[in-house]
Deep mutational scan, measured.
Amino acid sequence: EYSEEELKTHISKGTLGKFTVPMLKEACRAYGLKSGLKKQELLEALTKHFQD
C-alpha cells in the first residue's frame, strides 16, 4: 500500500508510470477510485484524484 504523499511525489515527478498495473490497481482501490483495465486509465485516475 502506498501513502498519499508517496503517490503525490510520484505524480509530481512524473514517475508514476514506473508502477506496474497491479500496483496501480491496488492504489486505485485504496483510494476508492474507479479503475480501468489499461495502465493509462489507472494513471489518469490517480493523477486526477491527487490534482483536484
Rank of each mutant, 00 (worst) to 15 (best):
L16P: 00
H10I: 08
T47L: 11
E44R: 08
P22W: 06
E1T: 02
L33G: 00
S35Q: 07
S35V: 14
S35D: 11
A27L: 14
T47H: 04
L7R: 02
E4G: 05
E4R: 07
K48L: 13
T9E: 13
R29P: 04
C28W: 01
L33S: 00
L24Q: 01
K8M: 12
E4F: 11
T47G: 07
Y2S: 05
S12P: 02
H10D: 03
E5Y: 10
H49M: 06
H49E: 03
E26C: 08
L46C: 01
L24C: 00
A30E: 07
L33D: 03
Y2V: 08
S3C: 10
K13N: 15
F50N: 00
M23W: 10
T20M: 00
K8Y: 09
H49P: 04
S12A: 14
E5L: 10
Q40T: 13
L37G: 15
L46W: 05
E4Y: 09
K48Y: 07
K8N: 05
Y2P: 06
E26M: 07
V21I: 09
L37K: 14
R29N: 15
L43A: 08
H10R: 09
V21S: 03
E1G: 12
M23Y: 09
S35E: 06
K34F: 06
G32N: 13
H10C: 09
T20S: 11
G14Y: 01
R29C: 08
G14I: 00
S3F: 15
L37P: 12
K34H: 11
L24N: 01
A45M: 10
K25H: 08
K38V: 09
S35C: 14
I11H: 02
G17R: 11
Q51A: 10
Q40N: 13
L42F: 09
A45V: 11
Q51D: 09
M23S: 08
Y2N: 05
E4T: 11
K18F: 14
L43M: 15
L43T: 08
Y31T: 06
L16I: 08
Q40K: 12
K25G: 06
G14V: 00
E4I: 13
E1D: 15
L7A: 08
E1C: 03
P22S: 10
K25C: 13
K13M: 11
T15A: 04
G14L: 05
M23P: 02
L16K: 03
I11D: 00
K39Y: 02
V21G: 06
E6Q: 12
L46D: 05
K34Q: 13
V21C: 05
E41N: 08
K34N: 13
H10W: 05
K8I: 12
